[in-house]
Structures are given as structure tokens and as C-alpha cells.
Amino acid sequence: MIENLKFAHTENRVYQSFRVDTCSFQALDGYDLVGVSYTPEQEIRAKILLSCATGVPQAFYRRFSEYAAQQGFQVLTFDYRGVAQSAPQQLKGFEMSYLDWGKLDLVGAIDHFSDEQLPLFLVGHSYGGQALGLTSNHHKVTAMYCFGTGAGWHGYMPLKEKIKVQVIWNIVFPSLVAFTGYLPWSKFKMGADLPKGVYQEWRKWCKNPTYFFADPEQKELHRLYAAVKTPIYAVAALDDDWALPKSRYAFMQHYKHAPMHFINICADDFGLKQIGHMGYFRKGSEPIWDQMLETFNDLIPPSS
């Protein structure tokens, strides 16, 4: 289960080596999204677009974004529609599909942030790694590095987590959503509240070992994911109960034409007590980030 999160509001400010600015841009359908850019004062080596996990506001990734900016990468984070700064004043009655975050929001972010002069790398966390296959402009992404991306089926989880998830999905949440009209995720200190449509589809798809690829109403997804040829580096922490290697393989197999690199990591290897599903971006995870940024540096074409 997602651990307790703490978020901080980000405002425009200047650091010694990079600048932080709040910005806005439109999704593919014109929906207004709020983002935060982290721009190095020195020459920009490449760009990194951060695609968040489900219900995790962009502010959670601030520490990583600042770290990457100090290494010469310009970073853009953003909140999906219905989440945190990109949410309407009232979630009840707000209609959307879980797939909109990829098909509409991430597409808009890629168009807004991409630059023909610089490589664009996508960093995806959980759903963020799923979202690339939903985009129509994935060809603009040089490579994706994703953490904790899996199929979401409880059967891939350890017994204790499996039971917990079953109780929450099938007993606790249905009555809450029926009463509030949205998923009050924040009440459980799990992240931001989620629109009803996101909850309904997420719950439905997590009941199947192959996630939304088994949904007869989503047959087009097989074609969309097969079209992706972007190199993918898919990381799974061996203590991430929500996205263990089996879960990752079950999902990533559908990126069947993308050059794929599977990376398993252990907390001990990075001097950490645990990683879990959220620890990829927590304080002390700099060694994990260094491994990723080194890969990005290797993919940056040499200057002419």
C-alpha cells in the first residue's frame, strides 16, 4: 500500500544553481494543467519530464527535480487533471477516464516541454510508466526510466499486502465513494483525492493479471503500446509489494517493440533501509537517481 506522503506548495524561487517556476499549459483537449519547472542556470544538458504515480501530487517529486537540475537537467513536473493543483474546486461530479492522464495530459506535457534541440527523457513513477503507451507523441521521448510500474493485480503481491488491498478495494472504498462521489484518498494519508472515474477504472483493471489489456472495451491499447519504440528502463525494487518483478513483466510485455531494460534493485545496495513503492523518490535516494542520470548522460549525443 502507498505510504504516508507529505506535500509542500511550490512557488517561484531562485536557488544558487537553478530556478523554480510555476507554469501552466494545456492538455490535448484544452484542459488547463499546472506544472513546475526546474531550470539550471548553467547550460541545459537535456530535459526530464516527470510523470507522477496515481494520486501523488507533483510536489512529492520536488527533491528529485532539484537534484537533477543541479546536474544540468531541466525538469518539468505537473499534476494530472483532477489531482492537486490541476483539480477542480469540487471533485464530486467531475468526469474523466483514468486513461485521460496519458492520452490527453501527458501528451500535452510532452508537446509543451519538448525541444528539437535537446533530448527529452521521461521519468515515470508507477502509473507514470504506464502512461507512455497511451500517448500519440511518444516518438518525441528519447528514453523512459520508470520505477514501480506494474499490472496492479493483487495476485502478484505478498499475502499480507494482497489481503489488505482486497479489503480496501472491495469493502472500504466502495461505500466511501458512493457517499462522497470521489475517492477521499487523502483521508487515508495516501495522496491526493481522486475522481470517481479514476477509482472505478483502476479498481476494475486491478482485478485482472494483465490489467487494462484484458478489458474488451480497451482493445486499441494493444496497438497503441505496440507502436512505442522508445527505449525503456524499468526498475523494480524487490521490497515494492505493489510492483514486484512479476507485476512489472506482466505490464511491460505490451511495450513489445520498445528496447527494454529490466533493472531489479535492493535497498541494501543503495544504503537504504527500504524502498517500497514510494522510496524511489524519498530523501536519501540520491544513489538511485545517480544511476538513472548516468544512463541519461550516456544517451545524450556529444556536442558538435
Rank of each mutant, 00 (worst) to 15 (best):
L49C: 04
L134A: 11
G108P: 04
Y127H: 11
E43P: 00
L91I: 03
L122P: 02
G129D: 05
L122Y: 01
G93M: 05
D79M: 13
D115Y: 08
E161S: 15
M157V: 09
F73I: 07
F60G: 01
A46H: 08
Y98T: 02
K92L: 04
A84P: 02
G148V: 07
L49Y: 00
G133L: 04
S136T: 15
L49V: 09
G150V: 09
T180P: 00
Q89Y: 03
D115H: 10
A53V: 09
F64A: 11
V36F: 06
G72R: 08
L76Y: 01
P174N: 01
Q166A: 11
F147M: 14
P158F: 10
T135M: 06
Q42C: 10
S136E: 14
A143I: 00
T54D: 07
Y38V: 05
A68H: 07
Q42I: 06
F78P: 02
K47S: 08
V177P: 02
Y98Q: 03
F60T: 03
G152H: 07
K162T: 10
V75Q: 03
D100Y: 04
Q117S: 15
G72M: 12
G155W: 09
L50K: 00
K92P: 02
G102F: 09
R62S: 14
A143L: 03
Q130A: 13
Q89A: 13
G124M: 09
E161Y: 11
T149W: 06
P119C: 09
L104R: 13
H138V: 12
Q85C: 15
E95F: 00
E41C: 05
A68L: 14
F179R: 12
L104E: 00
M96K: 01
V75K: 02
S114Y: 14
E161I: 08
S65P: 03
R62T: 14
A109V: 12
Q85P: 06
Y98C: 04
G102N: 12
Y38Q: 09
T142V: 12
Y67S: 15
M157C: 14
K92N: 10
Q71T: 08
R45W: 00
T142H: 13
D105W: 11
I44E: 12
L104K: 15
I110K: 01
K164P: 01
I168D: 05
I110G: 01
P158E: 10
F147Y: 13
A151F: 04
F147N: 10
S86H: 03
S51P: 03
F78D: 00
T135D: 04
H154F: 09
F78I: 06
S86F: 10
R81W: 10
E95I: 03
E95K: 06
A87S: 12
V172K: 03
A53G: 15
F113Q: 01
